[in-house]
Design a protein around this nucleic acid. Structure first.
Lengths: 172, 172
DNA sequence: GAAATATAGTTAACATGTTAAATGATATCC
DNA sequence: GGATATCATTTAACATGTTAACTATATTTC
């Protein structure tokens, strides 16, 4: 038995590419988002802008750092998007009185109107997805995803140092 | 009982933000990739470059369109990345004789050496993840993700037309 | 078999992801 | 109480995501 499903060709011992967990998660997420993107686009919103406005709808005001956490965006992305949303009058910002470093953000009336315009379609799509996949299975999937996250939270990142032989890759 | 868990504040009827499926998938995927990124980075590779080299390792040669499909990248992204990988001599390309439109790509000896250098760490991380989460649960999760994808494949995209009131968002 | 159509790939333009560095403000240390 | 470290946010630089437009080749149609 020379080949025991040992993985990819060329003798590199490795899982089959198609079975990788990151790929599976990426594909699943893309399948879901593909349903939402056209509607968001018709309202002039990207997925991330929508995430931010959604998060703002749930609160009165929120600090930038906390907003980054709940909308799951990195600081630099959030910083740019807030600049654009503010220019479109969809959000309002001020600085905290007690700590001038902190920015405080809230959704504007116009932003709220936009959310209200998008929400029905968005909810309808979500309902359709739930119906097709099954509400029970959906809840089960969400549980497993949370559990996966929890499992990896304490894992701590490996960080060995090395580099490409010849190291002719772009600066840094 | 004035509020029956009706969702976010401000009277917009909507799921809680934190329960959205796209967010759950994004968070889970990020938790996984956070484990791999430092190692890839130490070898001068981004996640997408790694995906491409991985896919190339499994075949002798492959056409660009098919590579886009298996590496799950859009054409423009793939086009740019192939340009860079070729400049770094990690891949080789030629055009198909029968159809001059088609490009044919393969991994170079240097690219293969790089894969061999990264694979051990990568496999070790994957094994650690499997161990922590549980091999059985991991397989079950992958099944559910595939099933979700399948459920949505036939859904066909809603595409109502509308726009932001005042439409002062960036051109297009 | 030349015009119309379709296909494969790239380029363009803009938004976001990602890491590092800069900026400004606050807290801490002696 | 002033140097120093820490913190919140932004800016910089480069890679990728995303849609549209473009180029070159192939195919189809009449």
């Amino acid at each position: 038995m020379p080949s025991k499903k040992a993985g990819e060709g060329r003798g590199v011992p490795m899982r089959e590419f198609s079975r990788s967990l990151p790929m599976a998660l990426l594909r699943a997420r893309e399948a879901v988002m593909r349903q939402f993107r056209p509607s968001l686009r018709n309202h002039g919103l990207t997925e991330q802008q929508w995430r931010i406005l959604r998060a703002l709808t749930a609160v009165d005001t929120i600090e930038v750092t906390e907003l980054a956490r709940v909308a799951f965006l990195l600081g630099p992305s959030l910083s740019r998007i807030l600049r654009d949303l503010e220019a479109r009058d969809l959000i309002e910002r001020r600085t905290a009185e007690a700590d001038l470093r902190r920015g405080v953000v809230s959704i504007s009336p116009k932003g709220l109107k936009l959310i209200e315009a998008v929400a029905p379609t968005s909810e309808a799509i979500y309902a359709e997805i739930t119906g097709r996949f099954g509400a029970g299975k959906l809840a089960e999937l969400q549980d497993m995803l949370r559990e996966l996250e929890r499992s990896l939270a304490e894992m701590g990142v490996t960080d060995e140092v090395d580099a490409e032989a010849g190291s002719n890759y772009k600066s840094a």
